[in-house]
Amino acid sequence: MDYRNTLTTCTYCGCGCNLFLESLDGKLTHTTPCKTSPVNEGKLCIKGWNVHQFVQSEKRLNKPLLRKDGKLTEVSWDEALDFTVSKLKEIKEANGSDSVGFFASAKVTNEENYLMQKFARAAIGTNSVDHCARL
């Protein structure tokens, strides 16, 4: 019997509400807002309250898909990344660095967002960086 409440941060937006992911024997069962968190003081929005659901959703994409002959096909991470790298290079060479834009996300960590803008500026050479909250 393995019952846990894991303290974590909601991935839905940049507010950073703290919540507990409740699990029983390795399966997520509930989300509970953290009362002692100074950020959300025991409150959440509807997305936060249901954050445990998408993790185990059957509809969740957990392997990369590549469009081959017009059809989305499961591929390995290596193949997906190699394809992305070659395409990015191709576009950059043909049309210049500013032909590529980057969308960061409120759903990832600060560090990941930092890495992405670094990649945009240092590897591709563009400052066209924006984030999903403006969409």
């Binding site: 019997m1 019952y3 409440n5 303290l7 703290n18 507990f20 409740e22 509970t32 953290c34 002692t36």
Partner: peptide, 12 residues
Amino acid sequence: MANGHVAPCLFQ
């Protein structure tokens, strides 16, 4: 009380 926060717990 863990990580400075109060949470429900199953003590075994």
